[in-house]
Computed example of a mutant assay.
Amino acid sequence: MPQPSHLVLSASRGAVFQLDEDGHFIALPTPTGQPIFGVTSHHITVFAAFSQPSTISGARARLAAEPTAAPVDPLIDDLLNWGLLTVEGTARGHQGGFGHIEAHLPMLADTRRVHAYADAIRAHAPGRTVAELGCGTGILSLLAAEAGAEWVWAVEESDIANVADEVLHAHRRRGTVRVERANSFDVAPSGPVDLLIHELFGVDPLEENILRIIEDARERWLKPGGRLLPMGFAIRACAVGGPRWRHGSESRQRVRRLADELKIDLDPVLRASEKTPIRRIDPPTIQPTNEECLSEPITLLEVDFRSAAMAPGRADHTAVIRHEGDVGAILVWFEIQLDETRSLAASPFSEPTHWQWQVWDLPETISVAPTRPVTVRVELRTTEGCPQIEVVDVRAG
């Protein structure tokens, strides 16, 4: 039976695909898991379509252009049954695993993040009415109350709202802060507020459907001239090179050698890998050195939450090369603009945060030099009203 079109699925990050001695695909949900047989190249193509969380309808639209004769829905059912796809939530702003305290501990342990928000809240909350969108454990609402907010309305859809209520009770702030367990689209404060606080950023700051959620809250919750905190963000990137950053090209070379050894055609796998070359790494697991950062940072996208309207399209961004080398990947991060003077960057050039970096592995390395800059082409797509940015081409100038 087809799954609901609005369901958001994501590919299992630990999944491994291999070829057995007879040249048949097998899959491992985790590197040490039990093998799954009956996997086809069509399954791998569909799996790759969910390398970033996506609605089923959005994946169907992307897969419609693929040269596959196999129906998509049965393949999705197989991947779900095998544990190779997992359910994230719905397009309304999924809560995923954020109802569990384990998801919030890394955020609280990220002292750079908490202190940056605390400084901005202390500057803007005193004497004002405040709403927090997706309050989690309630710490930002608590900080607003402690800073002297007139009252705070905190909205949280998941079970973690119970923890937020306990945190506020422990600080005797239940009279100032009210936690409402609800989806933000379904509720509104008793009156428009002066300050709207939010922290809905995932590794990809667009993946939590953040623009749609904040736009709705801004239009219905915030007073004219009220303040959004943060007020926007930027997605930035740099070209990196060196042996540690050749994951894409070296993996493809090994697959080609395997195809030659077994005398089989693995071009469908290689084509699928070109369409979804992204992976995620934990800072500072692979902290790039100065020598590995071959380019100066470039800005791929800027978003102002006060008027976040973005048209789909492509754009080219030229990176200034610091020194010559072979580019193996594009390292992507984001920077939050808390207010006019305060920002928080999840950057390889600053102290690590809990946010992972995105790495766009290139299928082949590219030689660059200060006289030969690199151009990164990105495409902004919209699927069911949710924008997604993708690196679609990288080439030397």
Rank of each mutant, 00 (worst) to 15 (best):
V392H: 03
T382Q: 15
A188T: 12
W333I: 02
G325K: 04
F98G: 01
S273G: 10
G225S: 07
E180Q: 09
Q3F: 10
R244P: 04
I26A: 10
A309H: 15
D194V: 04
M231Q: 07
D316Q: 08
D73F: 05
A118Y: 11
G225A: 07
D316F: 02
Y117C: 00
R257I: 00
P370N: 09
V303P: 10
C238K: 00
E166F: 08
V327F: 03
E291Q: 13
E21P: 06
P284N: 05
E66N: 03
R342W: 01
R181H: 15
S343C: 11
D110F: 07
D77M: 03
D260G: 10
S350D: 13
L140W: 04
F25D: 08
L206I: 08
R246Q: 15
P348D: 02
V303H: 09
P373T: 11
H323M: 11
W360R: 03
N162Y: 15
R178K: 05
T375H: 07
L380C: 12
V327A: 02
D316K: 04
H100R: 15
S184H: 04
G226C: 04
N183E: 10
L258W: 06
S249V: 02
T299A: 02
I36Y: 12
V72A: 09
R112Y: 09
A116R: 08
G99M: 07
T383S: 12
G148Q: 13
R173P: 08
S249R: 07
A144L: 09
I278D: 13
T318M: 13
A48K: 08
V203A: 08
V374K: 01
L196A: 10
R236K: 10
L380K: 08
W153D: 00
D326A: 14
R246A: 13
A15F: 02
D186C: 11
I214K: 02
A103V: 10
S51P: 00
F25N: 12
L270C: 07
G225N: 06
A147E: 07
Q388P: 00
I264W: 06
P312K: 04
G313W: 04
G38N: 14
P53Y: 12
G89T: 09
A131E: 01
A116F: 08
V130D: 03
V269L: 15
I321L: 02
F17L: 14
